[in-house]
């Protein structure tokens, strides 16, 4: 992948792509969710880095659909995935460490959800 590239993936192809990136020796930089307008779900951006190059995988996820965690491939992903679950209500399956909604103990439920 080249610097700044954004590759669109689906929930089915996400794990395969993440695996490929991991095997090339890249690291996970961040995972970020963005709520789409009118409750159409969330757009999730996975960013990976190799030295100073950064590239992304992008996934659009309707509200009711679940996504499988990449924390079995990139150990630290559970941190971002728990955050995403608490703030955006993204349903992530099979996280290595699941805080079950207690990552941020906040009053409002999924405040970023639209």
């Amino acid at each position: 992948m080249t610097d700044g590239e954004i590759k669109v993936v689906t929930p089915d192809t996400l794990l395969g792509e993440a695996m490929k990136i991991h095997d090339q020796g890249w690291r996970l930089v961040q995972i970020c969710a963005r709520a789409l307008k009118d409750g159409a779900g969330n757009e999730i951006t996975y960013s990976f880095g190799d030295d100073l190059i950064m590239a992304h995988l992008r996934l659009t996820l309707p509200c009711e659909e679940h996504v499988t965690s990449i924390s079995h491939i990139f150990q630290t992903a559970y941190f971002y995935e728990n955050e995403m679950h608490d703030l955006f209500g993204v349903q992530v399956d099979m996280m290595t460490v699941d805080f079950k909604g207690n990552f941020y103990k906040i009053g409002a439920e999924t405040p970023f959800k639209k």
């Binding site: 930089v29 961040q30 970020c32 963005r34």
Partner: peptide
Amino acid sequence: EAVYYLKADGTKFIDRFRVR
């Protein structure tokens, strides 16, 4: 290293700003 993501949609309010 800090990573910032910003998405704007042409209004004076930004749609999403994220800080890692």
